[in-house]
Design a protein around this nucleic acid. Structure first.
Lengths: 329, 329
DNA sequence: TTGAAAGCGCTAACAA
DNA sequence: TTGTTAGCGCTTTCAA
């Protein structure tokens, strides 16, 4: 592969000049610019990114840390992030943390030695102090996606989950549901808590409301099966259920089917997320999160930080959730 | 961050010696080794990977190029690949090509300047000559996943699709199907062709067989809807359908549901891939591909090539497909 | 068994 | 407007 030196020789200029045309900075005469560009194309020259990185510039690479790309939730984010990165000349390193603290920390220090320019972190296990400390000592900007710590100055991009929850409950009410239950996700997940709060806010003034209408699940399919059983045993007369996410909603649906309880006639069900609305049958009613927007904005914010802009590290909540009316309500 | 020079000073040795202990090569006295290691831990030293890469070693990074990580097929592969890479100290760069030749080529040359160590390529658009030429002039090993070119020496890892197709058809026969149709995928996709061939081989000697039992689809949900309609209009009496992939099978299932044709009573349906076996209701019968094995083996093979082992570049077909008996057969 | 020194390819003062 | 040169942090001959 041709180097900058080869180009400089062929063009009859110094490497500094070539560097200037590569980086489009500093003054360079039009005539020399032409010569250099000719030499570059003649040699099919492309700058070695490793050398550029070592010489102090960036790696043009960011890392995306997710619990597990297999969770259908994350490819949606990953795609938006990669698209946005690619448009700006950045690449994305994919890291699965399995929600294990150690694996996450290992990645974090690996990324340091790789001189990654920034990190998009979707993690429900990391502590805010850790993140702040990491940013401080590594000077690598970190942006949170799908989670946040309200009391700390960390940039975060996520849906307005409380709003979404209200939309879900309202939809059930509009569809004529009387007593509405909720299957909530793990309480260590911010989004799960918010959705639960949204449910509570919408329901607590109803005559039928009682806290035992909230059953906890694990955001997985099987958890949904168990939770709906629990809910029905507590309240055989529930008429609608706002399930904390689509995965659990699928589980609930399967369980109801097995128990021969007709959906939506006897019981209406609405999920949250909007993963794979295409793939399901019957189609699940759900609140679709604006994944693409979240990912794209998070990435753009990160890129601005990388460019040295000092941003206001705050929480960006997206209100553009959409009700997807399926066949379960 | 501490550098190798800092360590060498603190340990009272030369940088060369420190380098030797980092890389565990060359002779180094036990006593000095201890000193160096103490210094390293004292300074919390970790070698800068960029500098190592520039000095001639590798980047310990591979790229995974997929058409679109949103296709539920690819996260399965990505996970296996990332797991395997991570165990061996490698990172994975994620690239979406959208099956566009230009985007793919752009990535390929970008990866060159990034001095990537190897590439895992899932592409149905690239030409074998291109790949061979790229490997030759870049010295970057490329391994194909989920596709192959039988007539060219390119390492490829994929399921034995023909075998899987036979399994699917046999299952339908066992379940009592008489006339069996097939919805095949795009013919430029190797796997789609193989599955179709498998179907043909299994069926051509049957009394009911006729080529018009094969309808073509596009491997997408909507394509499945259209294809099943087409098939039914050609052959109102089909009793079983082997659908070329799960996405189309979902579409077919939805269409049949809309048409009030009962599955599996009136018509039996089996898909291929094994994505989303959890998500569907009714659960789809399908042939599950050994994604994890494919990804892991492909990655291991790539790592061996990166380590300089000259491998026999051939096609690795995985026979370990599994019938998932759902509720549609 | 160890060290000195020459790069790897590029950037960025500093001079001219 | 251009060139010289000193690094960036590490690896790797080649000598000692």
């Amino acid at each position: 592969m041709a180097t900058i030196r080869d180009v400089s020789k062929l063009a009859g200029v110094s490497v500094a000049t070539v560097s200037r045309v590569i980086n489009k900075n500093g003054y360079v005469h039009q005539a020399t610019l032409d010569k250099v560009e000719q030499a570059m194309t003649a040699l099919q020259y492309t700058p070695n990114q490793i050398a550029r990185s070592l010489a102090g510039k960036r790696t043009s690479t960011v890392a995306l840390i997710v619990p597990d790309i297999l969770n259908p939730f994350f490819p949606l984010l990953a795609r938006a992030i990669e698209d946005t990165a690619q448009k700006k000349g950045f690449s994305v390193l994919l890291c699965n943390s399995d929600s294990k603290q150690q694996k996450e920390l290992d990645y974090l220090s690996l990324l340091l030695t790789k001189q990654i320019d920034g990190i998009l972190l979707a993690s429900y296990t990391s502590k805010p102090e850790e993140i702040i400390q990491y940013e401080a000592k590594s000077a690598i900007p970190v942006v949170l996606v799908d989670t946040c710590f309200p009391d700390y100055p960390i940039a975060s991009f996520l849906s307005n989950h409380k709003l979404g929850a209200r939309m879900a409950v309202n939809h059930l009410i509009e569809r004529g549901c009387g007593k509405i239950g909720h299957i909530c996700g793990p309480t260590h997940i911010f989004a799960a808590r918010e959705r639960c709060l949204g449910y509570e806010e919408s329901c607590r003034d109803q005559s039928w409301y009682t806290p035992s209408l909230i059953v906890s699940g694990d955001f997985q399919v099987d958890g949904g099966r168990r939770a709906i059983q629990e809910l029905l045993s507590r309240h055989p007369d529930v008429h609608g259920v706002f399930v904390g996410n689509d995965l659990m909603a699928i589980g609930a649906l399967k369980q109801l089917h097995a128990m021969d309880i007709r959906v939506p006639e006897r019981l209406k069900l609405i999920g949250f997320d909007g993963i794979a609305t295409d793939f399901l049958m019957p189609e699940l009613s759900t609140i679709v999160q604006p994944f693409y927007d979240i990912g794209a904005h998070a990435m753009n914010h990160l890129l601005s930080r990388i460019d040295g802009e000092s941003m206001h590290n705050t929480i960006f909540e997206f209100d553009s959730l959409v009700l997807h009316k399926g066949q379960t309500t």
